[in-house]
């Protein structure tokens, strides 16, 4: 692979839009099969209708897996880093709002800080996932290790 950027090239504040996904029931079902998480929250409308949380909240319909959103966030990092001698090393997420079939979600990445440790070069990144209404469905803190 040819390195197209190095640690020195990346400025704090650098940001870009990443993976954009039209979420469908079929996609959620396929993720359930592939990730072995077949919780009825992801496919059973009757279960959703009868499920109420302690604060009185309910889901509107079946929901996408938190780890599906997480997977799109990680994919955004690998699409960016792997061709350029970087590695995705950490992601901390908070799943703030449900992702429903019919939603279009997009990942955004911003480099918030840089740090050289004794043995590594690191980009501290903030990730935000928004839906088509501009609502934040997930946020994340990531670490990218830059090898050159």
């Amino acid at each position: 692979m040819t390195a197209e950027f190095s640690y020195a090239d990346i400025a704090v504040g650098h940001s870009f839009d990443g993976v954009k996904v039209d979420v469908t029931r079929e996609m959620i079902k396929e993720f359930a099969m592939a990730s072995f998480d077949n919780n009825p929250l992801h496919w059973d409308d009757d279960f959703i209708a009868e499920t109420t949380f302690a604060n009185g909240k309910k889901f509107d319909t079946v929901i996408g897996h938190g780890l599906m959103t997480y997977s799109f966030m990680v994919r955004t990092m690998t699409d960016w880093l792997w061709p350029d001698n970087g590695n995705h090393r950490r992601l901390e997420t908070r799943f703030r709002s449900p992702v429903y079939p019919g939603d279009t979600i997009q990942v955004r990445v911003e480099v918030q800080d840089k740090r050289e440790t004794r043995k590594g070069k690191w980009l501290v990144c903030g990730l935000t996932v928004t839906n088509q209404r501009g609502e934040t469905v997930s946020t994340g803190d990531a670490l990218a290790e830059i090898l050159n």
Binding site: N39, P40, L41, F47, T51, H65, G66, L67, Y70, N87, H88, R89, R90, L91, E92, T93, R94, F95
Partner: peptide, 15 residues
């Protein structure tokens, strides 16, 4: 983790 109705609130992973 397989209990029906288990909701994932957030995760952190080191790779």
């Amino acid at each position: 983790m397989r209990t029906p109705g288990t909701v994932n609130m957030g995760q952190n992973w080191w790779i």
